[in-house]
């Protein structure tokens, strides 16, 4: 198999890798905010339950969660395993990443001094207005580096989808490596991930710069 065919084959899988990546971000970024707000809820029960879920999601491997989401419903309730593996993969990834994002958001929100809330109150802002117009813009700026960190990790974590036989780029790379008794596909995969992450780095850097309007 020539290097070009190899790259062509792996590019096919790369589309699926991108699907996991973008869908996970689309779902987990907002979901993380909801989880963060629940986690900071004044209601002790809500806060404690959310905290427990976050600790489970962060304390067990993503691979295990992926297996649980994919095969769990079948073993527990006899529900058929999904034929389109993208669904369980995106569900598992989104839930897992939402837990990490939630903690990043929480850190950001709690870093804003209470004086700002008081000032907003004096100026007649409602609670929602205070959060949306004053707190959130500052939080977004502060958490960008941590979010970039997670996003970069997500690019590499997509290879875990192999566990449930989702044919993403690394799975195909493994198949080629196996049939050709060759290490080249792994090198190709490494280059793919690196280039993808370089682009992610660049884009996130631009966003960070754009948000830097106070300085």
């Amino acid at each position: 198999m020539s290097l070009l065919t190899m790259i062509a084959k792996m590019s096919e899988g790369f589309g699926r890798t991108c699907a996991i990546f973008f869908l996970t971000l689309i779902f987990s970024l907002p979901l993380g905010m909801i989880v963060a707000l629940l986690r900071m809820s004044k209601n002790k029960v809500v806060s404690a339950v959310t905290r427990f879920f976050i600790s489970v999601l962060r304390g067990t491997p993503l691979m295990l969660q992926l297996l649980a989401v994919t095969y769990g419903p079948y073993y527990l309730f006899g529900i058929s395993v999904s034929r389109n593996k993208l669904i369980p993969v995106v569900v598992a990834f989104s839930i897992n990443y939402a837990a990490y994002f939630a903690e990043i958001y929480r850190g950001g929100i709690e870093s804003i001094s209470p004086g700002q809330y008081e000032a907003a109150k004096v100026l007649g802002y409602t609670k929602v207005q205070t959060f949306m117009r004053i707190i959130l813009p500052q939080v977004v700026k502060r958490i960008m580096p941590s979010v970039t960190n997670e996003v970069v990790t997500l690019v590499k974590d997509t290879s875990i989808a192999f566990t449930v036989s989702y044919q993403e780029m690394f799975t195909i790379g493994k198949q080629i490596a196996n049939s050709q008794t060759s290490f080249v596909p792994f090198v190709v995969a490494g280059v793919f991930y690196f280039v993808f992450n370089a682009i992610v780095d660049f884009v996130m850097g631009r966003i960070e710069k754009k948000l830097d309007y106070y300085k």
Binding site: Y74, S80, V81, S82, R83, T163, S165, Q167, Q175
Partner: peptide, 21 residues
């Protein structure tokens, strides 16, 4: 219709039992 590559036989059989293949 589709060729599903699993990383162990248990997964292959689970996919069959779970009607995924």
């Amino acid at each position: 219709g589709d060729l599903v590559t699993c990383d162990s036989f248990l997964k292959c059989f689970t996919e069959l039992d779970g009607n995924a293949v």
